[in-house]
Computed example of a mutant assay.
Amino acid sequence: MTDPGLPPFMQNSGGAPPPMSEGSFGQSMGAFGAMLKLQQDISERFPKSKVPWNETRKFLKSISIEGIRSTSLYRFHMDFFREIGLGNMQLISYAPMHYIFAVPNNPVCNFYPALNNQKVCVATTDALHRFFREELELECSVEETECIKNGDPVCKFKVDLQPISAYQIMLDEYDKMILSGVRPPVENDELMERVKALTIYKLLEKGKLSEIGSAYMQFASNMKVEEKVFDPPWKLKEELSSIAETHSTFGGAFGEMAKKVQTNQSAAPTSPEPVVSEETKRLQEEAKKTDSFAELLAKMKKNE
C-alpha cells in the first residue's frame, strides 16, 4: 500500500487579530458591528452542535477527500459555518489527521475594507478550533495559511489533529481487537477496510502492530472512557426533509413537521459528555502537553 504522505503545509503563523483602528471611523464601527454579530451567532449555535463519537469516527476513518465529503458530519460542518456567516467553506486537501479548508470570497474579509497585506480571518480560525475541540472533542491546532486580504486568491486554513485525541475517538472495540491480534466478528470486506485505515494511520505496518500502534495500545490500556450515544445535531433537519419528500401537500407535511419539532423541543436532551475517570482526565491533560507517544509513556511510567 502506498503511503499517502503529508501535503506540503505552510508554516507561517496567522498572527494576532487585525486592529480595528485602521481606516475611517465608519469602517471601524462597521467591522466591529459585523464581528460582534458573528461572535454572537457562534456563541448561540455552538452549544447545540455537539456531535456523537460514532459520527466523528466515520469522518476520521474516511481516507479520501471524496469519502470525507460524503459523511453527514462534513455536510453539517459546511452548512453550519455557512449559516453563521463564515462563507462557503470546503475541504481541498487531506492527509491523516491533517486537513486544509478553503473559503473563496470569504465574507470575513469584508469586515476589514481598509486592511491589506495581512491575514485577517481570526474569527474563522477560532471557529474552526472551537468546532473541532468543543463539538468533536478533538484536540487540534488551526492556522490561517493564506488570506484574500494578503493577496491570495482564497483564504485557507490548516487543521492538525493531536494524534492521541484522534485515536481515542476513531478506534472502536473492533479496531482495538485487530491491534491486539484478535480477529473481530466482521465480514472480510469490513476487516480489510479496517486494516487499511489502521495502516494509513500508521498503527499497523505490513499487517503487524507498528511502533506507534504499540505505544498507543499501552496508553489506551489506561484510558477508561465510557462513550455516550446520542442523536447528532443534524438528525431533526434530515427527518424534516424526509417528511417533506413523502407528503404531496404542504398541509400534510406541515402538520407532521410541527409535531416532530414539538416532540424534539420537549425532549431537549443535553448532549452528554463521555464519562471519564480522574486518572483518564489526568492522562488526557498530559497528552495535550506532549508531542510524542514516547514522551507521554515516559511520563506515565514516572508517575506509576
Score class of each variant (00 low, 15 high):
185 P>F: 00
182 V>H: 11
132 F>K: 04
95 A>N: 14
211 E>N: 09
157 F>E: 04
117 N>A: 06
132 F>A: 04
216 Y>R: 10
96 P>Q: 11
158 K>W: 04
169 I>N: 03
155 C>W: 05
123 A>I: 03
207 G>A: 11
177 M>I: 06
210 S>F: 08
128 L>Y: 12
183 R>Y: 11
203 L>W: 01
158 K>M: 12
115 L>T: 09
228 K>V: 09
152 D>Q: 03
155 C>V: 01
159 V>Q: 00
109 C>M: 08
109 C>F: 00
160 D>N: 15
116 N>C: 10
128 L>S: 08
151 G>H: 00
100 I>Y: 04
150 N>Q: 06
223 M>Y: 05
143 E>R: 13
172 D>T: 12
126 D>W: 07
146 E>C: 08
173 E>T: 05
209 L>G: 01
163 P>H: 11
118 Q>K: 13
112 Y>R: 09
116 N>T: 14
135 E>C: 14
229 V>G: 02
111 F>D: 05
174 Y>E: 13
224 K>L: 09
168 Q>A: 06
143 E>T: 13
91 L>P: 01
96 P>R: 12
223 M>T: 02
214 S>D: 14
217 M>H: 07
129 H>K: 13
110 N>D: 15
157 F>A: 11
141 S>M: 12
197 A>V: 14
175 D>V: 14
203 L>A: 00
92 I>V: 15
162 Q>H: 08
226 E>H: 09
173 E>I: 05
204 L>K: 01
131 F>W: 14
224 K>G: 04
196 K>W: 09
203 L>H: 05
186 V>M: 02
233 P>D: 07
170 M>K: 03
101 F>V: 05
108 V>L: 03
118 Q>S: 11
117 N>P: 03
216 Y>D: 04
126 D>C: 06
104 P>N: 08
191 L>F: 14
224 K>E: 14
140 C>I: 06
96 P>D: 13
139 E>M: 11
111 F>C: 04
229 V>R: 09
177 M>E: 06
222 N>V: 04
161 L>D: 06
128 L>C: 07
105 N>E: 15
172 D>V: 07
